[in-house]
């Protein structure tokens, strides 16, 4: 079966995020960018499905500026077969991303679509669910285990308080949580091979989707920084302060 994986280019998770002095956004100039960590887990899961003989082809798709092709090439080096780049320099919000992915799904007809549960920049946690709703598919969100059995996929989900397993009809959408797997590193020969793999580029207009953002960001600020408080001499003083000064116990 064919598996479609969506990946997003975001700020590298090791980079310290700095808000621009004019409060228009986060400073991304000359900042190291990388594949969103949850998307790496999505790619890894698809590759493991292929290694098990469940997946026959892995198509990786990314939306964004030309530079996104770096992340597509990374996914190809990790084991994806073919790439699709939807090129735009505009801001793409979750609903629009879902609409773009929907048109890719209609063309490619994958049995399974795997996405990260959220990107570490906008932290929305929306695109997978929106795509599932728009395409009339079931969804296994926050997955910690994915087992394909015939025309069904069993997805174990990380929910508040524990785990929950659902059975979904295929085709279905899965979004990844941290414990699903530990992504591998790409080997040098595979990085070289990835350069020769097919990568098709298209625009939102080619897919018949008009980008029309519904949300506007008025300002972005640094969080209120905490001031260091006081040092207490012993446990008795600590408990006294918590009870009588902070009044939290």
């Amino acid at each position: 079966m064919k598996v479609l994986v969506a990946v997003k280019r975001v700020i590298d998770y090791n980079v310290k995020v700095r808000v621009k002095p004019d409060n228009t956004g986060v400073d991304l100039a000359n900042v190291k960018m990388a594949m969103n960590p949850f998307c790496e887990i999505a790619v890894e899961e698809a590759v493991r499905l292929k290694e098990k003989g469940v997946a026959s082809e892995i198509v990786v798709v990314s939306i964004g500026p030309k530079a996104c092709q770096e992340q597509i090439r990374t996914a190809l080096a990790l084991g994806a077969d073919r790439g699709i780049h939807i090129e735009t320099d505009e801001e793409v919000q979750s609903l629009e991303a879902a609409k773009l992915l929907k048109s890719v799904v209609e063309k490619e007809e994958p049995k399974l679509v795997i996405l990260g549960k959220q990107s570490i920049d906008s932290d929305n946690n929306q695109t997978g669910q929106m795509l599932a709703a728009l395409t009339g598919m079931g969804q296994g969100t926050f997955a910690s285990e994915v087992v394909v059995e015939g025309e069904k996929v069993n997805v174990t989900r990380e929910v508040d308080g524990g785990l929950m397993t659902v059975a979904l009809n295929l085709p279905a959408v899965v979004t990844t949580d941290l414990r699903l797997n530990e992504p591998r590193y790409a080997s040098l020969p595979n990085i070289m091979k990835a350069k020769k793999k097919q990568l098709d580029s298209m625009t939102p207009a080619d897919l018949g989707v008009e980008l029309a953002p519904r949300l506007s960001t008025l300002k972005v600020e640094a969080p209120a920084s905490r001031q260091a408080g006081v040092k207490v001499a012993d446990v008795a003083e600590l408990v006294d302060k918590l009870k009588n000064e902070a009044k939290v116990i």
Partner: peptide, 22 residues
């Protein structure tokens, strides 16, 4: 929570509106 995060984006997509998260 994990219930709201799961179904609310579906609601937004079905109504063709954006969601404001968290």
């Amino acid at each position: 929570g994990t219930v709201g995060k799961d179904f609310m984006p579906r609601v937004a997509a079905l109504l063709d509106v954006a969601q404001v998260s968290d």
